[in-house]
Design a binder for these strands. Sequence first.
DNA 1: ACAGTTGCGGCAAGCGGTTGCCAAAAGTTG
DNA 2: CAACTTTTGGCAACCGCTTGCCGCAACTGT
Lengths: 335, 335
Amino acid sequence: MPPENAKRPTIYDVAREAGVATSTVSRALSNPDRVNARTREHIVAVAEQLGYSTNPLARALPSGRTQTLALSVADITNPHFFGIIRGAEQQARAAGCTLIIGDTEESPELESRNVERLGRSVDGFVIAASRMTDKAIKQLAAHHRLTLVSRQVGGVPSAIVDHVDGTRQIIEHLASLGHRSVVYLAGPRRSWLAVQRWRAVQPVARRFDMTAARLGPFPPAVHGGAAAADAALGSGATAAIAHNDLLAIGMLRRFAERGVRVPEDISVVGYDDIFGADFCSPPLTTLAGPFEEVGRVAVDLLLSMRDPVRNHPPRRDVVLPSHLAIRGSTGQASR
Amino acid sequence: MPPENAKRPTIYDVAREAGVATSTVSRALSNPDRVNARTREHIVAVAEQLGYSTNPLARALPSGRTQTLALSVADITNPHFFGIIRGAEQQARAAGCTLIIGDTEESPELESRNVERLGRSVDGFVIAASRMTDKAIKQLAAHHRLTLVSRQVGGVPSAIVDHVDGTRQIIEHLASLGHRSVVYLAGPRRSWLAVQRWRAVQPVARRFDMTAARLGPFPPAVHGGAAAADAALGSGATAAIAHNDLLAIGMLRRFAERGVRVPEDISVVGYDDIFGADFCSPPLTTLAGPFEEVGRVAVDLLLSMRDPVRNHPPRRDVVLPSHLAIRGSTGQASR
DNA sequence: ACAGTTGCGGCAAGCGGTTGCCAAAAGTTG
DNA sequence: CAACTTTTGGCAACCGCTTGCCGCAACTGT
């Protein structure tokens, strides 16, 4: 018989056995200061002896606290999210919470539907790389506890890696290698990062007297790299900045196929420093960031919304530093 | 105000508005055949108009069904599990369930504790690459709905990729390239797969008149590759079979560092065909399998335990075919 | 037309906790 | 030692939904 057989003891059993009221048991277990130390110890002992453990569902119903957090990512197959997931999982566990992970497959509809569906069963949401509009996010945030990863929307707490400064680092790096023309291979139209990055590229490029062009959007996955690579080549630029490492790696493969040498013929840079970026060939120069930390911070932010700490105003819009991991895919400008 | 403001309508509101009893509303929504079509439609209409949605917690408490499944993986940072996670997530969603993912960090204790903790809030568990002992698994399975991935334990439904046949494919491939000595770099002692694979290596190697040695265990991660590579080299074998791709990739890196040419000096094979295996250098020959499908099947098995379908005895111990992805890391035997 | 089914809706008792309110007990104070 | 404040434990009303059981009304068959 796979399913439960013996009825698990309830708070009633413990109360009876300990000779106290259920309310006292409840308090002894979840609000220790509310009950005399002696009584509490007795109750705890009885509970242990009976093998009692509180039923989270039953607890959640009247209290509203589920000790569960939800994390939704735009594409669970993108290794980039690994770090974020891991960090979030760690922090959630440290806070005694369970983490639910949802893949929203780049769809804003799935994203909001997911929130609606889970709204009543979790204490809050972390949405990573949301594809929703600012307006939709604000609206959701009005009804649910919500923090963002890799996205900033006025009023909603968020954790991101500094991609503006990161983009500066990329351009400076390319400039220092003599590049005068760069092309940005854009990610999904709905990606906030895609927009921000391109915005960051322009002024810095101008400052270094570089021409910058944008192409795309391309699917931010390895398979999007072929088209991106061809487009980059067609643009005549000597350096290509891909929306993310997946796309960059796809481009590297396409270049290899076409006999284009990297970095001799063209330099390639990505974002995220995902698993594999350091052992593809050539190893990819990419913007790295503390993504586990981002995941942790996002969960922290969420928890601090739930448990407003005394005179400890929650930080909002945390920006973590990024740094360029310089590898083999960038080199001196060609012509 | 981030948290909920307006009280969401309950089944009572709907009942009042529709002029029926709450029980009727409940049935209309979750047990449609039990109520007259006309009434049902009316109730559904009222519910919709009121913006009602059922509270999953409240539903779960009396019914015991949470519509939630848990998946625990031994190491969430191993890309191998991506496919499994994805497949499981898909299938769970298709069945209207939510998936909880837990990382058990290679620890059998964390694994069982996780099950205990979530036991009451979940309809069942999929445990991938369990590190628990057979006995512990059986015991857990006696009290919880449980299916296994990449592990077989008598009586517990499971989904695995055929690694025995896969191992045969690997050895045959190496034999056909003239290798006469092979070394197996073992994974964690508690890994069932590690044991099974080595068991599979021996007879096949013997059949091809090859010598086979086992070294290890090594941590099944990239960083474990250095020691594994050195050990493999020390063994004098011309071909190395790594416990998994992570280890294999780590080995490739170490070989590159030491100036050992792959496959000229030594051939390397991995298991899993993870993200990156095809673009490391040289691209890794590895045993590929339908891991998304494995995830889906594991969830299916779980669901069929929950909802015993009429005369449809649940399949148990599903074995999916594997195939060797032959790439650049294997070649003619050296000496 | 009458007894026997069947279909459909309602009643009410849970599911296993939490928590506001209250009273008894214990501790303080002058 | 009386009057007052603080602890501490109990009572009971929920939280929002499910479900076994009951009874009424509408069918069925003869």
